[in-house]
Design a protein around this nucleic acid. Structure first.
Length: 223
DNA sequence: GCGACAG
DNA sequence: ATCTTGTCGC
């Protein structure tokens, strides 16, 4: 089996046309979700974590981890094809579906406007926000690492997202609309979910769960 | 042609 | 992403 990138590119372009960048979700958010993906056995196994938090208290309501065989390599610009199968498996286990889902990776801040947050948003028909730790494409003005600083991420006269300094002395986050959320709301909701750490709570918990970090171990022990 | 390139 | 200790700075 070989990979036909030409074919996948066309698939992305077709899907990108279906992405909605306007607010289309209940104004009252009661549950927010976060996702993160990790790998095991030299990448043979893809491990996806999904966590649901109550908003605005950020208590963990439930979390799930799904492991599936990795069926696609990592190719910049095609990350979603590698990670979405495991994310869908984890999603099936979710009882309390969130009102908003924070996805690790780009939303429309992607060469063809279909980062994993947008792709997953379409597959789940859920409002999603892309929260990436690195830039994939687009240009922006370098900002002092002072919490609160924010500048547009632009690609060819078009704003594809935001570069946000979420915490002092930390590298910025790359925020972009995934699906059914406006760029302004994406930035707004990330800010509303920040609690003194670089990552917004849904992403921070998903990160801890997917990688079995101290925050998660402590949580398990307390349970 | 060369470098850049989410996780 | 992952393999990994200590270390520097806020």
């Amino acid at each position: 089996m070989s990979i036909n990138l030409e074919q996948l590119m066309q698939t992305q372009q077709a899907l990108a046309k279906q992405v909605k960048c306007d607010d289309d979700f209940n104004a009252s958010i009661n549950y927010v979700g976060g996702t993160d993906v990790g790998f095991e056995d030299n990448g043979k196994i893809t491990r996806a974590a999904i966590v649901i938090l109550r908003y605005p208290t950020f208590e963990v309501v439930e979390y799930h981890i799904a492991r599936v065989e990795t069926g696609f390599p990592y190719i910049p610009g095609y990350l979603s094809f590698r990670e979405y199968p495991a994310l869908l498996a984890a999603w099936q286990q979710v009882t309390q579906k969130p009102d908003l889902l924070f996805v690790d990776g780009q939303g429309v801040a992607h060469p063809r406007r279909l980062g994993i947050a947008s792709h997953l948003g379409l597959l789940l028909d859920m409002p999603t926000i892309g929260v990436a730790k690195k830039r994939l494409c687009g240009q922006y003005e370098i900002l002092p690492k002072q919490a609160g600083n924010v500048t547009p991420l632009q690609d060819k006269q078009e704003q594809i997202g935001w570069v946000l300094c979420s915490k002092n002395n930390c590298n910025p986050l790359f925020i972009s609309t995934g699906h059914r959320v406006s760029q302004d709301s994406a930035l707004n909701w990330v800010n509303l979910c920040l609690r003194g750490y670089r990552l917004p709570e849904p992403t921070r918990w998903a990160d801890a769960i997917a990688s079995n970090k101290p925050l998660f171990k402590k949580f398990i022990y307390a349970e």
